[in-house]
Simulated assay, not measured.
Amino acid sequence: MQARHSNSLYKRDARPEFWQLSMRCCVLAGSIDVAFFFIFLWLGSPILAWINVISVAMYVCAYRAFVHRRNRLGFALIQTEVLVHAGLGTVLVGWESGFHYYLLMFIPALFVSTRARIAWILAAHLWIYYAGLYVLMWYMQPLQPISSNALLGVNIFNLTVVFCMFSYLALFYAITVTRAHTSLSRMAMTDSLTGLFNRRQIVALTEKLLARHHRCPTNLTLMLMDIDHFKQINDEYGHDVGDRVLVTVSQHLQSLMREQDFIGRWGGEEFLGVLPDTDLEQAAETAERLRKAIQVLEIDNDGKKIQVTLSIGITQYRADEVLSNAIARADYALYKGKSSGRNRVEAIQA
């Protein structure tokens, strides 16, 4: 039962950007129908004028449906309004009025709002409706014809509206795709909890540095850091507090490192720092500064202060060695530091 409910919520909330766009389209289309009301009153077509009043009411209802996340109802109201309005406008004024342009707006909307198979079926029905309306107007005259100049003006107005809406849709989808790509790239590169680089990304960045290192030899130091007694924090305060400790420590470590350095979450409570153009002595000074900063750090837990310490193992990269060997050496240095009492910096010569 709960699984079905969760699946229902997922379907209802799917493609949230599209439904937000639909709400904006309701406002835009309602505003256009208000303009049409006055246009057709001025042209002496009261039936078409009052049809737009009904259209505005339908867009208001559709907007409220989207606000309450009744997306299917909202889309059905928009679909009904456009189909009926386009058909009536064409039959009353003529094909040359351009009301049929609005039917084309449904083509991208169908494929975004429904599954592909259903979208193709609906698109086929839309084509039949569109073609049928076109053929119908070959054999009948408009029921409420307007002057040729007015007809041209209505056509240009409808063409302009549809042109602008298609342009807006294209821009919207381009921005949405770009944002989605950026978000996926960020998710692929960073740790979801701490916001630091994840293990895969920090290895990739280090490999790039090493490629440059081989072309132009320079100092590169690795720094493996571990929060002391972190399991006890989880056991005593719970994993939520443990996560808060991880986030706070990672933020402080990142803020204290140089701009050219980078740091990532290596796993669990371990962090890997990569320091380009840094020899072992300079790295030891940096590591000691980080250790002291974390030692005095206080993390609030409902009024109670939690303090943690950091053990750090550092080593310098050897020319032409495999990266995993250098990391293993830094890990051994970290192990030595923990074995010697924790809350200390231990270095191993390259």
Rank of each mutant, 00 (worst) to 15 (best):
E346I: 09
W266F: 10
Q254M: 12
H181T: 15
I233Q: 03
L151Q: 05
A86W: 02
K231I: 01
H214G: 13
R117F: 08
T218Y: 14
L151T: 10
D226I: 02
R15K: 11
T218G: 13
A180K: 14
V203H: 11
R212F: 12
L209K: 11
T248S: 11
T248Q: 09
I327A: 03
R15T: 12
V53M: 00
Y130I: 08
I294Q: 01
W42I: 10
S147Y: 02
T160A: 12
F66P: 05
I156W: 07
A131D: 08
W50A: 05
Q201K: 13
M187V: 08
T90N: 00
A350R: 07
Q201H: 13
R212P: 10
V241F: 01
E270G: 05
L48H: 09
K231W: 02
K208N: 14
F18P: 03
L41T: 04
L210T: 08
W50F: 12
V322G: 10
S183F: 08
A35M: 09
N71I: 07
T218M: 15
A76F: 11
D191V: 10
L224E: 02
R265P: 03
M23T: 05
M225I: 09
E259D: 14
P108Y: 00
M140D: 03
R344N: 11
E207L: 10
L169M: 15
F262A: 10
A119F: 01
V93F: 03
V322R: 14
L41R: 10
Q349I: 13
Y332Q: 15
G89I: 03
F157A: 09
L196A: 08
S97R: 06
D300Q: 07
I202G: 04
T248V: 12
N198D: 07
F262M: 09
I227H: 02
V34G: 07
N149G: 07
Q260I: 15
C61E: 13
Y317I: 11
N198V: 06
R179S: 05
R244G: 04
A170L: 15
I314Q: 00
R258Q: 11
L151N: 06
L210E: 06
N301W: 07
C61I: 11
S147Q: 09
L41I: 10
N325A: 14
T309C: 03
R24K: 12
R200I: 08
S31D: 02
T182W: 12
P142C: 01
V135P: 02
L323H: 08
D320E: 14
R344M: 12
G89M: 01
W127I: 14
D228G: 01
Q141V: 10
F40V: 00
G313L: 04
T176D: 14
A319P: 13
E207V: 10
G87E: 04
R24G: 15
S250L: 05
L272K: 00
W95K: 06
V34W: 02
T206N: 05
E346D: 06
I39W: 09
V245W: 00
A131T: 07
I299R: 00
L222G: 02
L21P: 07
E270A: 04
E269P: 05
L256A: 15
L88G: 04
L103V: 04
L43D: 05
T80K: 05
L290M: 11
D33H: 15
K11M: 11
T114C: 09
L290K: 05
